[in-house]
Design a binder for these strands. Structure first.
Lengths: 218, 218
DNA sequence: GCCCTATGTGAAAGAGACTAACATTAATGT
DNA sequence: ACATTAATGTTAGTCTCTTTCACATAGGGC
């Protein structure tokens, strides 16, 4: 039953003739393989439905093997969350560069990037927000998460540089809440009950502009 | 007043005497007791951390007893979600009545009620949204959830009765996303990184008005 | 080649979800 | 009243998953 030669999408093949991925005892890159396996399983069964033993089986190793690379299951999830937040931060950074001139547009870009990330990295996103990972306990997670927040904050405050701090803070939490709520509701298909025929991303951009354009007006 | 007959911590008291609230075989209202026990445990350890067996122990029965009242653990969670959505819907309904004259204020009230519910019914709210309950599978959950949505939708559309449907829909999803995102981020203490000294609810009302006041302007 | 250590394995303990067979009580009908 | 039946609890056991432990294997530096 257990196909020990199957390392997931086995991507290596950097050389020539694909050496039969016959894995002998040592895997080679089990750590990464386990993370990919976990992500694949989460995409299928949700975070709650992830069994570490399934990830191990999918990677073609014994159920005890993961413990050579992760302290426990939560540690694996934390690693995925950390990776996710790093990707997330980078995506937001790219978006923030896009429209340097038009600050309103820049913020809208960032909001779109926020939601787009959630869609394109569903599993990462779910682990990041509903993985139950305590950021205080995992600095590896908190660090990129905080950097991502700072990018968002900067983009919002850039619109109202002279406003009172309370107003800036209200705006920051409002903008964050808007895009975060949109992303989470969409991932759970809750927004299906709202939408007409338009696509999710079109609907999103409409919502974002509807609200963020107003930010500039003030 | 759901206090039936305090069945939670029951001590057999091997000695004689004492007519302690000795529960004789039949509990009396185990179904409700289990739901309360589960909610208490969820408040402490989160949805993920809930063990059905712990709820049983807390209710003073054997670990098999819950299966006389719930098909499985998910069924218990679905029941809690259904109860939560019913309370939620009622809370939104009350809020929608409050400011019949001023529609903008009415919507702000509803938004505040949304978040206030999340705070005051933390455990219910968490089960409702991160419990992993499929609404298609549990009509008992979907029904009150949909009614709650309709209340929110009605409040939003009431502001723009003549607008084009796409615009109305964008507004509905935006308003929903805003309050939902705010509620979820706040429950996870993510907003702590934003806030100054102001309280959560004050911050919320500021955010809501900041955005919802604009709704009326259009 | 040899040793050290990183990495993988099987076995087993412990916990939680669930089931089956049995026990006790509450309800109901006559 | 009393017997039958339906509800509701219990004990014991199975299954799966998490985690640990002692042991096996391989790769790299000397």
């Amino acid at each position: 039953m257990t196909d020990r030669t199957n390392h997931l999408p086995t991507k290596p093949a950097p050389g020539k003739a694909a050496r039969p991925p016959k894995r002998a005892y040592h895997h080679g890159d089990l750590r990464a393989a386990l993370m990919r396996a976990a992500l694949a399983l989460i995409a299928e069964h949700g975070v709650k439905g992830l069994a570490l033993s399934d990830a191990a089986r999918l990677a073609g190793v014994s159920v005890a093997a993961p413990y050579r690379h992760f302290k426990d299951k939560e540690d694996l999830l934390a690693e995925i969350a950390a990776e996710g937040f790093a990707l997330f931060r980078d995506a937001l950074a790219v978006a923030s560069q896009k429209s340097q001139g038009d600050k309103v547009k820049g913020l809208a870009e960032m909001g779109a990037a926020y939601v787009e990330f959630a869609v394109q990295h569903r599993s990462h996103f779910k682990v990041m927000w509903e993985g139950g990972i305590s950021k205080a306990e995992y600095p590896k997670v908190e660090q990129p998460a905080y950097q991502a927040f700072l990018l968002l904050r900067q983009a919002v405050i850039g619109l109202l540089p002279k406003a009172k701090p309370e107003r800036q803070q209200a705006l920051v939490s409002a903008a964050w809440s808007l895009v975060h709520g949109y992303a989470t509701l969409m991932l759970e298909h809750e927004l299906d009950v709202v939408a007409g025929a338009q696509s999710d991303m079109k609907q999103l951009r409409q919502s974002i502009h509807l609200l963020l354009d107003q930010f500039a007006a003030k």
